[in-house]
Lab assay of single mutants.
Amino acid sequence: MAAGGDHGSPDSYRSPLASRYASPEMCFVFSDRYKFRTWRQLWLWLAEAEQTLGLPITDEQIQEMKSNLENIDFKMAAEEEKRLRHDVMAHVHTFGHCCPKAAGIIHLGATSCYVGDNTDLIILRNALDLLLPKLARVISRLADFAKERASLPTLGFTHFQPAQLTTVGKRCCLWIQDLCMDLQNLKRVRDDLRFRGVKGTTGTQASFLQLFEGDDHKVEQLDKMVTEKAGFKRAFIITGQTYTRKVDIEVLSVLASLGASVHKICTDIRLLANLKEMEEPFEKQQIGSSAMPYKRNPMRSERCCSLARHLMTLVMDPLQTASVQWFERTLDDSANRRICLAEAFLTADTILNTLQNISEGLVVYPKVIERRIRQELPFMATENIIMAMVKAGGSRQDCHEKIRVLSQQAASVVKQEGGDNDLIERIQVDAYFSPIHSQLDHLLDPSSFTGRASQQVQRFLEEEVYPLLKPYESVMKVKAELCL
């Protein structure tokens, strides 16, 4: 049975990233139509530049190519590739079939990587351009969430054990800070992308030097003109047959890092959902379990974690691919890159769409948070109580021993009897502590235990987050809708 299948058929496997999760716009960027249309555009740009620099290419040939950029006979191309065992030459023939007058000058002087690699770089750039505003929107939604809850005390956790208090907004800023680093890295790697350009079979530009009869300047002009037509500021000066596969490492490393950030955020949300302090959106008709109707599973956060793990592992592909590119190139890269580049971007696209949807509907339960604080705060307040007693004339050592005994009794009630923490009640009825009984409410005010959390939130948002989001103001209103 021949390899390949009808990918629109229910009898043929289709990647869930495309069929179930990723956005239509990201799927289109990695589609065959987008790819092969870009090949034709690159052939047109090459012909236009070659004509401008004096090669015998007519206006009629150029116009014929322009008129057929979208006229792609995919069936013919597939048949040609089956016959020739070469995808680029299959599309040269297919393009030439609908451009008979231009057929002889299509791909003039070029090698397969002229269309293959340059198209990949265009796709990487455009895919990054799709991700950047999506990530900015996630940051914006979380920034709104953090600002609104900047002063809401909550129990902090280290080692997932109760620690000092923080605020809900401050905790959210930990998430935002990681995503801001990801946004900066995505922008950097996007701006650092260079075009492969017009380089020939081993990167020496020998074929173009021959076409222009040894004119170095025209060869350099050709490279520059096509690079500018493709919208790049610069091209690699040095290439082998391909652009260095280190570029793929750079791009997928940034995406993998984004995956790590999203995994951490969504894990926190899942843990908070278990504590009943916070939940992701839950639709009115949504079913959490087929057997347990009360369940409210954090399905979206779980999906993000599941896909983020996949995204983090994909960076190993370009690392290994770059390491086995012998001399000017081997074909070890080809099949692998067809999979890992598309999957990385479709996965990143999915987790950003999902995280935006989550961040637009996060639900906080202040009463649950308050109750958990009441359970733990008495123990945390013991040092403040000791200091207040010393100020009232008591002995630190005597007070410490009193607190120690009462704390152990209260802990026994919590752990052995399943009761509430009654340390404060014990202190309130103990005559030894009568000098500070009137101060206990103040000493137990949760806001006095959150330090500068709310001020940190305000400063972080104003100095770091809002300036970073400013270039994306025009796209901030787009909502994230999930079908599944």
Rank of each mutant, 00 (worst) to 15 (best):
M1I: 02
A2M: 13
A2F: 15
G4N: 15
G4A: 15
G8P: 14
S9M: 15
S9N: 15
Y13N: 10
P16L: 14
A18L: 15
A18V: 13
Y21F: 13
Y21H: 04
E25Y: 11
C27K: 07
F28G: 07
F28T: 08
Q41L: 10
W45M: 08
L46S: 05
E48L: 07
L53A: 10
L53F: 07
I62M: 09
Q63P: 05
N68M: 09
E70N: 12
N71P: 11
I72Y: 12
K75M: 11
A78I: 09
E79S: 11
R83Y: 13
R83N: 13
M89A: 08
A90N: 06
G96F: 06
K101L: 15
A103W: 08
I105D: 06
I106F: 08
I106N: 03
H107R: 00
L108V: 09
G109S: 03
G109H: 02
T111V: 00
S112G: 07
L121F: 02
L124Y: 09
L142Y: 07
A150Q: 11
G156E: 02
Q164N: 08
K170L: 08
R171T: 01
R171Q: 00
C172R: 02
D178C: 06
L179A: 12
Q184P: 11
N185Y: 10
V189R: 11
D191Q: 08
D191P: 01
D192W: 06
R194D: 04
R196D: 06
T201C: 06
T201Y: 00
T202K: 02
T202E: 03
G203Q: 01
T204F: 00
S207D: 00
S207M: 05
L211R: 04
F212W: 15
G214L: 10
D216Q: 10
D216R: 07
H217F: 15
L222K: 04
L222V: 11
D223N: 10
D223A: 06
M225Y: 09
V226G: 01
K229I: 04
F232G: 03
K233V: 10
A235S: 09
Q241R: 03
Y243S: 15
D248V: 02
D248W: 02
V251W: 07
V251P: 03
L252W: 03
V254K: 12
A256K: 00
S261Q: 03
C266H: 10
L271P: 01
L271T: 05
L272C: 07
E277S: 03
E277D: 04
F282M: 02
F282V: 06
K284P: 07
Q285L: 12
Q286T: 02
I287T: 13
P293Y: 03
M299D: 04
R300E: 06
S306E: 00
L307T: 15
R309P: 01
R309V: 12
M312T: 11
T313W: 10
T313H: 07
P318E: 01
P318S: 07
A322S: 10
F327L: 09
F327K: 03
L331C: 11
R337W: 01
L346A: 11
D349Q: 10
T350R: 05
I351L: 13
I358M: 14
S359V: 11
E360S: 12
P366H: 08
I369M: 10
E370K: 07
E370T: 10
R371Q: 04
Q375F: 10
L377F: 04
T382F: 03
T382G: 05
I385A: 04
K391D: 05
G393T: 10
R396F: 04
Q397F: 01
Q397V: 06
I403M: 10
R404L: 09
A410Q: 01
A410S: 09
E417N: 09
G419P: 02
N421P: 11
L423T: 03
I424S: 13
I427A: 08
Y432H: 13
S434Q: 11
S434P: 05
P435T: 06
S438W: 09
D441P: 10
L443V: 09
L443T: 03
D445E: 12
F449Y: 15
G451Y: 01
S454T: 14
Q455C: 12
R459S: 12
L469F: 09
K470Q: 14
K470S: 14
P471C: 15
E473S: 15
S474A: 14
S474M: 14
K477L: 14
K479Y: 10
L482I: 15
C483W: 08
L484W: 14
